[in-house]
């Protein structure tokens, strides 16, 4: 099990944070462009899922998988989106993304008066804490292969 990337978007589509750990392939776009593409894909996926669903839904989709990676999605009621890509052995990690929001984003971004609400988070403390949290997760276990 391993974690590849993490994106945090706010409700306006700005990428608030991006980090990568064991990423093996670049998309060939700049990070900026890639974030835009990712946000665009997610918002299309959300409307796609909302309309295709045979019954009324409360939440949107929580993950999709291809033959090589799995993308997990969690959206807070305020429209903040946490997106994590991992390998295929990882199960449902909605609770981990929720924890990340409660324990790290809220503590070190929302409660930090110097953090801007519109652009990418610059706080080094937030970045360090987030990195520590992700590296400490059981699903981060990297087997050097």
């Amino acid at each position: 099990m391993t974690i590849y990337t993490l994106y945090i978007f706010d409700r306006n589509g700005t990428c608030r944070h991006y980090s990568e750990w064991n990423r093996k392939n670049q998309s060939g776009l700049s990070i900026d462009e890639e974030c835009k593409l990712m946000y665009g894909m997610l918002s299309s996926l959300k409307s796609f899922v909302g309309r295709m669903s045979p019954v009324d839904q409360k939440e949107s989709f929580h993950s999709y998988r291809t033959n090589k990676y799995k993308l997990h999605f969690y959206e807070t009621p305020s429209g903040l989106q946490f997106v994590m890509t991992t390998d295929l052995n990882v199960g449902n990690i909605t609770d981990i993304l929720q924890q990340m929001y409660c324990n790290i984003y809220l503590e070190y971004v929302v409660k930090n008066p110097f953090c801007s609400r519109e652009e990418a988070v610059k706080s080094e403390l937030f970045k360090t804490k987030l990195d520590e949290y992700v590296r400490g997760l059981p699903i981060f276990a990297t087997k050097l292969s």
């Binding site: 990423r23 093996k24 999709y64 998988r65 291809t66 033959n67 090589k68």
Partner: peptide
């Protein structure tokens, strides 16, 4: 957008 090379598209949503 795949973080790993040679990925297919969405197989399960």
């Amino acid at each position: 957008l795949s973080p790993v090379p040679h990925s297919t598209g969405i197989q399960m949503l």
